[in-house]
Design a protein around this nucleic acid. Structure first.
Lengths: 155, 155
DNA sequence: GCTTGTTAGTTACATTTTCAACTGTCATGG
DNA sequence: CCATGACAGTTGAAAATGTAACTAACAAGC
């Protein structure tokens, strides 16, 4: 006999568990880029995206980091105020601007990355090689099933 | 040759992927209890917890559903206003109150559960039995490694 | 050129979340 | 009893987020 349909055990409910695990990870990570560098989540993502893909536009950053355009807009403002990012208007299309990290921004980024990588490394070490592979595989499958492959961010 | 340490590929970064997947799932679920029943996430979790563990206190609900006490407090208020929840002061300790769903609240809960279960079922069906098992196993391991077994919620 | 529709990005406003301070109650030790 | 400290829960203010409306610029058809 299986579980009664009328009650749902949160502890066994996949969406809930997924969310809880992701929240725990996010929280621990925010210790790093939040407390230590004063970045919000969107700001960190924009920083990471621009380090990887310089001269992107806000739209491209949003698509790549899956951030809503308002979050990108505000994160860009924040980073610009700290002189970690600069904008150059695209003369071909004056609606958009090319975004790049300043040397200062790049320095900050490079100061954060080792902490991030270390976190992931610790996590994988704790999981062991087999379960680490399993995690990656599961994420592949979930991204696939949820249609997170090449879809645009929530609009 | 492995990836350069100075740049981090967001697409391959486990915390980012985890977060993205969890966000996509949450979003789809909120369509159900949000649009259809006008519940916030904390409200839904309190409802689900109390359906499972009636006569819990706010503290117990928070611990079980991993919600900060302020979120619990406000969710309880919201549910009480809708007459979906009632409180009874504990005479043994007048700081706390026992929370229970009203018949109306239970009815609402039972109206939501099938939608939730159906969502999970669709997800598992899309994954197939092997990968569904893999997801559960991975969550077990991650919860273990992240110390999410019996730890208190963020305070 | 001018209208119509679309797109990049910003801003305003409402809702949510977070953080810290607060109230009232309990427990302990003098 | 009556301090002191801890604890359950609430509240207010600040920060973050989401939604929708907006501005400015492009593009296509006429």
């Amino acid at each position: 006999m299986t579980t009664l349909d009328s009650t749902l055990d949160l502890e066994r409910f996949l969406p809930y568990r997924l969310n809880r695990v992701a929240a725990a990870v996010s929280e621990q990570l925010r210790e790093v880029y939040g407390r230590k560098f004063g970045l919000t989540i969107p700001e960190w993502r924009v920083l990471a995206t621009l380090a990887q893909l310089p001269r992107s536009t806000a739209r491209e950053v949003g698509r790549h980091a899956r951030l809503h355009k308002t979050k990108v807009s505000r994160a860009v403002q924040g980073l610009e105020e700290r002189r970690w990012l600069s904008r150059v208007e695209n003369p071909q299309d004056r609606r958009e601007e090319f975004l790049s990290l300043t040397p200062l921004g790049l320095t900050t980024y490079r100061a954060i990355v080792p902490d991030m990588s270390a976190f992931e490394a610790r996590l994988c070490a704790a999981l062991g090689p087999d379960d680490t592979r399993a995690v990656r595989h599961v994420l592949d499958r979930l991204e696939d099933v949820l249609g997170l492959a090449g879809a645009p961010p929530p609009d």
